[in-house]
């Protein structure tokens, strides 16, 4: 392995990410796992159909046990979401919600699938007419306008801060911010107007978005609403790296049997590669991805060393 602080990055700490961390760690790679346990689909689940675990533990306990196990193999855990992923000179660079940047030889995407739709009246009707799911893509169309960002987590908070460069007024509509302390501090010091303990009831307008009705019965006049629920997912992070999605639904990342994506050094495992959404599949793919990624990092370091 190289002298880098870490070789293998894993985004997502559900069963796929944890199993990948265990196997990469056991291959002596230096592993760091990003993400928050509550964002795993397993967190609130009761495990019923996973081999050899009948009625033994809850999903939450399983995630905690997996973390301890992975730590015993040397993996390091950072409870932060990733808000940006890019690649440069055979390395992956990840930026955390608190603003830290890390460089890796290889990256395993295991952040699962999350609900990204708000499911309120007006949302579907106004997609592309003021409703957006991508601050990075669409901020430029709202120069000088008033906009709202909806969400409680890192994608919404980081999105609201990014929009300050374009929009006149930026509102953050959230029940409660669930973000790192550093990001929370940045948000509070910024000009983002935080509307807390409320949520969107309806998106209103004639031909395009004109405002929001909130659950506290207040209304908000905005021309744009950015729906940024949870942490950034596959489309937000991985599409930028150039990964190929499945042709049928365009929601999942295509991998081969080694869990390789079309990008060298980039692996995907678990729900993010498609159904069935089961622990058994996630840990199987995580195991393969972990072993393959550690091997990739070792070979990359060896070839760079031999070239001097």
């Amino acid at each position: 392995m190289s002298d880098q602080l870490y070789n293998v990055a894993i985004i997502g700490r559900g069963p796929a990410g944890l199993q990948a961390a265990i196997h990469s760690g056991s291959k002596k790679a230096k592993v760091i796992v990003f993400g928050k346990p509550r964002n795993s689909g397993l967190y609130k689940a009761r495990v019923a159909n996973f081999c050899c675990s009948e009625d033994v533990i809850t999903g939450k306990e399983m995630l905690e046990a997996g973390r301890k196990q992975a730590e015993s193999f040397g993996a390091v855990f950072l409870e932060e979401d990733i808000i940006e992923a890019k690649s440069e000179n055979n390395r992956f660079i990840l930026v955390t919600e608190s603003g830290g940047a890390f460089t890796f030889e290889t990256l395993i995407l295991a952040m699962g699938v999350a609900r990204k739709k708000l499911q309120v009246k007006g949302e579907k009707e106004f997609v592309g007419r003021g409703v957006s799911y991508c601050v990075d893509c669409d901020a430029t169309f709202f120069k000088g306008m008033d906009v709202a960002v909806v969400g409680n987590e890192s994608a919404a908070a980081a999105g609201a801060l990014a929009l300050l460069l374009y929009a006149r007024t930026v509102y953050l509509v959230c029940r409660k911010p669930m973000i790192s302390d550093l990001l929370h501090e940045r948000l509070k010091r910024s000009e983002v107007r935080i509307l807390q303990d409320t949520w969107v009831k309806e998106i209103v307008g004639a031909n395009e978005v004109e405002g929001l009705m909130l659950t506290n019965d207040e209304s908000l006049k905005v021309s744009g609403v950015f729906i940024e629920l949870g942490a950034k997912g596959a489309m937000e992070l991985a599409a930028n790296l150039g990964v190929v999605f499945d042709a049928e639904t365009f929601s999942f990342i295509e991998t081969n049997k080694k869990q390789e994506t079309n990008i060298p050094g980039l692996y995907a495992a678990g729900d993010i590669t498609g159904q069935p959404w089961q622990i058994a599949k996630a840990v199987g793919e995580g195991c393969t991805a972990g072993i393959e990624a550690a091997e990739y990092a070792r070979k990359l370091a060896d070839s760079e060393r031999s070239r001097g």
Partner: peptide, 13 residues
């Protein structure tokens, strides 16, 4: 636009 991830995803399509 070059900064848009989903745009990159749809280009091969």
């Amino acid at each position: 636009a070059p900064w848009c991830g989903p745009c990159k995803a749809i280009a091969p399509v």
